[in-house]
Amino acid sequence: MDARDTFDLTTGRGLIACPRCDALHVEEELQPGETARCIRCGGVLAKPRGGAFIQLIALSFTTVVLMMGAIFFPFLEISRMGFGNATSLFGVAMAFADGVLLPLVLAVMAMIVGLPVLRSFLLVYTLVPLAQGRAPYRHAARAFRWSEELRPWSMAEIFVIGTAVALVKVAGLATVHLGPAFWAFCALILVNLASRGFMCQTTIWDAIEDAGLRTDGREMAQGRTP
């Protein structure tokens, strides 16, 4: 836990402000497993884990593979009066593709499929060069910021609970079986939880900065007056 550098109270260099309460902290290089908490509100400021970048990249690929299965494999299978039928999420989306419900279907598909996949790609884009010790890609900072901003809108786990509620509602009328795609969604929840455990935003921002990202020309405007 050595203070890695001096800090500068006029430019803010070497300082960290808690996003929840604005308390100033001197930036320190943490060892994997250590946790830095805000002295004022107690929120976690940084919690690096060893090998986190590789794990996050692997979990992102897992998410994409599982999501492919979740879209194209049967999601629900229903049997009533001897007739069986199965449908995948992709089939459902296609069936609604020309109706008035298109906006609702698009929004739902974006929240449960689109955003988790997009976030995985953004994370891979950000982390692969960093894990290899190279300079980050040009838009790494923007990619990672978007990935974090989209986090609350990615709702696969809520969808799973919604499915359970829907099944109870129709339980008396027909026999509904859960298809492989449903279990893929359940696995996605676990992958997402694991990913959260390895995710330390502060460490990733530090890595992007230390690996020498040239931001998109904005640093040229640094000398401007208020």
């Binding site: 960290i16 808690c18 923007r142 910021r145 992007i208 900065e209 931001t215 998109d216 904005r218």
Partner: peptide, 27 residues
């Protein structure tokens, strides 16, 4: 940060002089 005449980035935590408008680290 506010009392020190600085401004903290809510997205990445980096601290900048108060008059700065965009975070140079995360944008």
């Amino acid at each position: 940060a506010h009392r020190a005449g600085l401004i903290g980035c809510r997205s990445c935590g980096r601290v900048w002089p108060e008059e700065q408008e965009t975070c140079d680290r995360c944008g």
